[in-house]
Amino acid sequence: MTSLRPTTSSPPRADVFLVFALRALAVVASGIVLLILVFLLLESAPALEGIGLTRFFSDASWHPLSDRFNMMPMVFASLAITFGAILAAIPLGIGSALFCRYYAPPKLASLYRALLQLLAGIPSVVYGFWALVVLVPVLFPSLLAGIVILSLMILPTVALIADASLAQIPLEYSHGSAALGLGRWSMIRGVLLPSARRGLVTAILLGLARAIGETMAVLMVCGNVVQFPKSLTDPVRTLTANIALEMSYAGDLHRSALFVSGLLLMGLVVLLVAIAEGLSRGKIYA
């Protein structure tokens, strides 16, 4: 094997510049995340001091103008809607990817892929408006309506990334399993899906991230009542919807409390990413 390091003592100028530029970009990218976190902390500091962290969990309800700041129903709603959507999108999305890759005739597959890409490009407000006019009159503003529209929105993300990761599996794998006499489904289940696991986890993770951060469509169909839903047909409000609904008219502590929503949201995303990372690592090396 040849080493990747150049053998000459001083690397070419262009390389030095490239490395410098790449490092700078990496610093900028991670710096932005840090800055956002610092900004969120600074903006929510007045609320954390003036209201106190525990009251965001223990107050009677979320009525910031009446000095009540409980955010737990919204944390629950965000999680419920995200997991509901991903549970619906995983089988549909991975199923679509498998169909595209291994079952559909090539022409149909490329047509279907183009359709998925189109679906991924539709702005979320358009999904929201469609849901408001078509879904809400039938399902009413509810947790269920939110889950349905969100699963539709993240389906293309999951399907396209799963499809791309299936495409990266070395051809020898399928040739080898065909030579062993495995059927198409046994080959997919026993060889191809396990070797694409890392990519599939990424697909699900990006779907989750999009679902938990989605705002406009959820705001339009979920009813936005702050409560723990007793059933799928109850209205709920997510953390993102809370920020979008109230930010433009909030002042002082109320505004700062909304930044605490943002902070909680960021915490949830970090938690989800950490869990997903842990899951995919554990399985690969186990």
Binding site: L65, S66, G223, N224, V225, L245, E246, Y249, A250, H254
Partner: peptide
């Protein structure tokens, strides 16, 4: 309406209501 909206404030004041006592089926922006 969501908290902080001017229309909510006018509504509550005119009808002498407190927002926590309202039972809504949906809250809009």
């Amino acid at each position: 309406k969501a908290e902080g909206r001017g229309t909510l404030e006018v509504f509550l004041k005119f009808f002498g209501l407190e927002n926590p006592s309202i039972h809504a089926d949906a809250i809009v922006g």
